[in-house]
Computed example of a mutant assay.
Amino acid sequence: MKDVAARAGVGLKTVSRVVNGEPGVTPDTERRVRDAITALGFRRNDSARILRKGRTSSIGLVLEDLADPFYAPLSRAVEEVARAHETLLINGSSAEDPEREEELALALCARRVDGLVIIPASDDHRYLEPEIEAGIATVFVDRPASRIDADAVLSDNYGGARAAVAHLVAHGHRRIGLIGDQVRIHTAAERLRGYHDAMAEAGLPADPSWVSMGSTDPDRVRAALAGMLHGPEPVTALFAGNNRVTVTAVRHLATAERRFALIGFDDFELADLLSPGITVIAQDPVALGRTAAETLFRRLDGHHDAPKRVEIPTRLIARGSGELPPE
């Protein structure tokens, strides 16, 4: 910093203000300091900054699966908010494994991140209590925390599922199937609840053979769908509980002798280019990520009010597959 100050003809405090984005420097002086920084190849000493401010200017993001297209825009939104706060984002994937989630979260805490954004896989987050008490801000996104009170930013999974089933009912369907993820997962449980309530509100039975919750492995989904389509009371429409289930269903239904109505929860690439286009309940992953990150930085800025739950609306996008009448 002394070399930068000498080259720019300013004091050390002025260089510090420019480097740390503090006010009180004229545009001409800031330009001279930045020119000197560029010429000398100066790099800020983050270790000293950490000791002085007690912050590392880094946050962690624990996702379910980095390869899932749903999480890419969510991660990008968190990164953009972090960048606006001059903060580095470090992320990792839990692969829906509670032990892996805990391992990742605690590893990030050990590296002294200022805060965490977590898409949870665990059903017990008490392991984070010491870290939160030590000052690491934590926000959960997509699913709430379990067994601790913490900020959460969620989609309206229940409302979205109700809207999907109501849409199928409005187009004449009375035997509507649901293939969803594992019930222990909050989003899957909420979508199942929305399905049952929508069927009840329409005065329709929800035969147990029309509902299959479990792994999204394609073989399991295909087997469940085949049972629903060829059972004693075959369904005429399907509500797919997430994008992985929807994609498997589209492939299976492409070879079916009859056309079946289909609505999927989560949009996915090329859904609008199929024939018919796939009707979906679309979440807003960008809003989820941005809201979660903004909530995190609000906590880092010193807001200590009670944890809040924010719910982001979903929307139904009609493209044709959900509007097919029963055959």
Rank of each mutant, 00 (worst) to 15 (best):
L104I: 14
A164E: 05
E103Q: 15
I136A: 02
Y127H: 12
E133C: 00
G172C: 03
A170M: 04
Y158V: 05
P120K: 07
P98L: 05
H171L: 06
D123A: 10
Y158A: 13
R147D: 01
Y127T: 10
S122E: 10
A145T: 09
L104D: 07
A145M: 08
L116D: 08
A164N: 10
R126F: 01
A110E: 15
S155Y: 08
R100E: 11
V165G: 12
D142T: 07
V165E: 09
E102V: 00
I136R: 06
L104F: 06
L128P: 02
P144V: 15
P144N: 15
P144Q: 13
D97R: 12
I136K: 00
S155N: 07
A163T: 15
H167I: 07
D156R: 00
E99V: 00
L128T: 03
L168S: 07
A163M: 15
Y158N: 10
P144S: 14
V113L: 01
E129M: 07
R147M: 03
A107R: 14
S93D: 03
S146Q: 14
L168N: 05
D114L: 03
V117M: 05
E96H: 09
C109L: 05
R143H: 05
V169L: 05
A145P: 11
E133Y: 00
A121E: 08
S155R: 06
V153W: 09
I136T: 14
E103C: 13
H171N: 14
P120S: 13
A105K: 02
I132T: 06
A164L: 10
S122Q: 04
F140K: 10
P130E: 04
E133K: 01
I118V: 13
L154Y: 02
H125E: 11
A110Q: 15
L104P: 06
P120L: 05
R147S: 07
V139M: 13
T138R: 10
L154S: 04
A163Q: 15
R111W: 03
D149Q: 12
V169Y: 01
A137N: 02
A161L: 00
S146K: 14
L106T: 14
V117D: 05
E101F: 14
V117N: 04
E102G: 07
A166N: 08
V141N: 04
D123M: 09
V165L: 13
I119L: 12
I119H: 09
I132P: 02
I132G: 04
A145W: 08
S155C: 08
A145I: 10
A150W: 09
E99A: 01
D151H: 10
R162D: 04
A150H: 09
A95Y: 14
G159V: 00
S122R: 08
R162Q: 11
A134C: 03
R143L: 02
P130F: 05
E96S: 11
A145F: 10
G172H: 04
P120I: 05
L168C: 03
P120A: 08
A121I: 09
